[in-house]
């Protein structure tokens, strides 16, 4: 059996239909961490389906066990000395191994590229920041002398939480703490990793709707995770007013491009009632997230074949 049509159909579901369902669902904003997990699972699933479909197209007549072993081998998962057990070392057999390997290498390579590039930019920023900024032990942050109220963080290796002295002057002690807690949560939660993963995916599959949606939604969801974290130890109004004060304390951006900002979305969420989705929904979504990456494998190798 040639699994290619089934795999391509599956890829279409994951790459096109699933994201539009996700974007229209309400639950990801109520359980943002689960939302990020599902986006990552969808991207992994799509990558796997694309890799297996490529392999399947290369060996149209054969069942894909050989290609699959080759794939696992290419990923370093197969047993060390096992050669890909292609029936004959034909070009098709080689392609069946090489194509999925290339798909995975492209995604992993793009991920590494984004991590390294962002890491270098952060290192350069940190190098300058440590000369201009003042480390505050009390705030556990670096204070940057600048007249624009702002707070941001440098996640990753030798992380920094940065706040401008204008923001320190503008905000009350409680508001400032809430903002810094939000930023610290980005650092401790390593939110730059899922964000880099969505960018890597978008680099390799730029035309797939999943890429655009995953990228946009993950960026919003990590903000919501950080908001929730700050709200554990700070009242709603404190974080919300801090957000308003910082936004209003700046020169307004010229209005071009409709909407696109998530500030209002976050503000309403912070101030509104926050209910976690029903445990049953959470459970089924979580199991779906686990199952999604495995499904393409089932298409290729149904149990018992």
């Amino acid at each position: 059996m040639n699994a290619a049509p089934a795999l391509l159909g599956y890829a279409a579901v994951v790459g096109v239909a699933a994201p539009s369902v996700m974007v229209r669902s309400a639950w990801p904003h109520r359980a943002p961490a689960l939302g990020v997990t599902v986006w990552l699972a969808l991207m992994l699933s799509f990558t796997l389906a694309a890799a297996l479909a490529a392999s399947s197209l290369a060996t149209p007549t054969e069942h894909l066990h050989a290609g699959l072993v080759g794939l696992l081998h290419a990923c370093g998962l197969g047993s060390g000395d096992a050669r890909p057990v292609a029936p004959d070392p034909s070009t098709a057999g080689l392609l069946a191994t090489a194509l999925p390997g290339a798909v995975f290498a492209a995604v992993l390579g793009a991920f590494a590229h984004h991590l390294i590039r962002a890491g270098l930019l952060r290192a350069r920023h940190r190098d300058r920041l440590d000369k201009v900024g003042v480390r505050s032990d009390r705030l556990r942050a670096t204070v940057l002398p600048h007249g624009t109220p702002a707070a941001y963080c440098l996640p990753g290796f030798r992380s920094r939480v940065v706040v401008s002295d204008a923001a320190v002057r503008l905000l009350t002690e409680a508001q400032l703490e809430a903002v810094l807690e939000h930023e610290r949560s980005h650092v401790s939660g390593r939110h730059h990793l899922p964000v880099a993963a969505t960018k890597a995916f978008a680099t390799v599959f730029p035309w797939v709707p999943l890429a655009r949606h995953a990228r946009e939604q993950t960026a919003v969801l990590v903000e919501m995770i950080a908001d929730d974290r700050a709200l554990r130890s700070h009242p709603d109004e404190v974080l919300a007013t801090a957000m308003y004060e910082i936004a209003a304390g700046r020169t307004p951006r010229g209005a071009f491009g409709a909407g696109g900002t998530t500030a209002l979305l976050r503000m309403r969420r912070i101030l509104g009632p926050r209910r976690a989705p029903h445990p049953a929904l959470r459970g089924s979504v979580a199991s779906l997230a686990v199952a999604a990456p495995l499904l393409p494998l089932l298409v290729v190798c149904p149990p018992g074949v």
Binding site: A150, A219, Y244, L264
Partner: peptide
């Protein structure tokens, strides 16, 4: 996106909505 900021720059309408 090497850095993650707390609030992005908003236009006047968005600030009013907040």
């Amino acid at each position: 996106g090497a850095l993650v900021q707390f609030v992005e720059n908003l236009d006047a309408d968005e600030i009013a909505a907040l």
